[in-house]
Design a protein around this nucleic acid. Structure first.
Lengths: 206, 206
DNA sequence: CGTTGTGAAAGGGTTCACAGCT
DNA sequence: AGCTGTGAACCCTTTCACAACG
């Protein structure tokens, strides 16, 4: 399989969301053209994206909604549900701990962590907050593969390094810094202030 | 000025953040090479990005840190501070209302809104929560140009439409739906579950 | 001499267009 | 006939390489 671009993975996730919606509505099959129309993209884009991973359609008929959604779930590595920990129980971390959108899509928040003694031992949005000291133990016992990092910017690098040592595979980083981690660990960044800045630029263009 | 890609705007925001950091540290000038090294990109990329907007450097010497950061601030439309409202005071909206990262970069949260009577009139993270009925009034009186939309998915489209009618120019949308709005209104999407799904795919590749 | 600014080349992603299958 | 899967064309972004300049 050749190298697949991040854009394609983006769209695969979006296809998946639409397909599960269609499945709930009882739609059995769909063509690349209909899919593309709903999403405002080209049908050839849909077919090209899928072609990176295999042949999922039936010529003349289209794609089986349920089958394709299952295939995409497997491609994204979500068939079995990914175990996730959140580190940093500030405003954002707490909000994410309560966010329904995660568990709805196969993600399982297994534990939340902070280094603030006032928070450790307390239940935050249904999750018992643990000490950072216990991270390694949980990563092992709960098979945690991914962490969501919502600590203050100054602590992000150090916390990330500690987490990497425990064996996690991927980090969703909300701090506005480039984390320095081994190549085998994947880091995706969400920078909320940057999103607003971008929006500001495009808002100015009217 | 030719059409500038979203990637370029992304990086301009990142340059700005680094430049303000350097300015605080007392660094006076910097070359495109140093900038690029810190960010893990090519120096030619930095120069090409800047070239879309003008000539800001001195050959042989590099860029004046403070001057360049000011220029980028203007390019992003942030010299005067953008007025922002947040609609939807759930977990995420409340967290964003308290988020320091916004005000640090020229954004000014002017008002927060919800349609839940239990929240209206209460102060949430230092912001008095208003009824959606009052949105139009505030957009006018406070010159609000951008909204952050953190309502539940089912209400996102209707709320966005109401907001557009009041005259706002841009929406930062956290609901996982494609909002249908007039072309003159810019919508940027942040989809947290999608970020995790992408991460899952790349985490699986080890 | 060191670094910018920029045309030109290279690389990558998107769209086209059609052969091939049902 | 209808729709997929895909090589080729097209287009946009990144990188190169160097002339221009302080």
């Amino acid at each position: 399989m050749k190298n697949v671009s991040e854009n394609t993975i983006n769209r695969m996730s979006i296809y998946y969301r639409l397909l599960t919606y269609l499945a709930r509505q009882g739609t059995r099959t769909i063509s690349s053209k209909s899919l593309a129309n709903v999403l405002g993209i080209k049908d050839s884009q849909v077919r090209k994206d899928l072609s990176y991973f295999g042949k999922f359609g039936v010529r003349g008929a289209g794609y089986d909604v349920i089958e394709l959604s299952r295939k995409i779930l497997a491609i994204l590595g979500l068939e079995k549900g990914r175990k996730v920990a959140i580190i940093g129980m500030g405003n954002l971390g707490s909000a994410l701990a309560a966010f329904r959108g995660f568990s709805d899509f196969g993600f399982d928040i297994r534990a939340v962590f902070d280094n603030n003694p006032n928070k450790i031992g307390r239940t935050i949005r249904g999750h018992l907050c643990h000490s950072m000291e216990d991270l390694r133990k949980f990563v092992k016992s709960e098979s945690i593969e991914m962490i969501i990092l919502t600590v203050p910017t100054e602590q992000a690098q150090e916390t990330a390094s500690r987490a990497v040592e425990t064996g996690i595979k991927a980090i969703l980083n909300f701090a506005p810094v480039r984390l320095n981690v081994p190549a085998k660990v994947r880091v995706n960044n969400v920078d909320l202030a940057l999103e607003l800045k971008k929006l500001s630029y495009f808002a100015g263009k009217n």
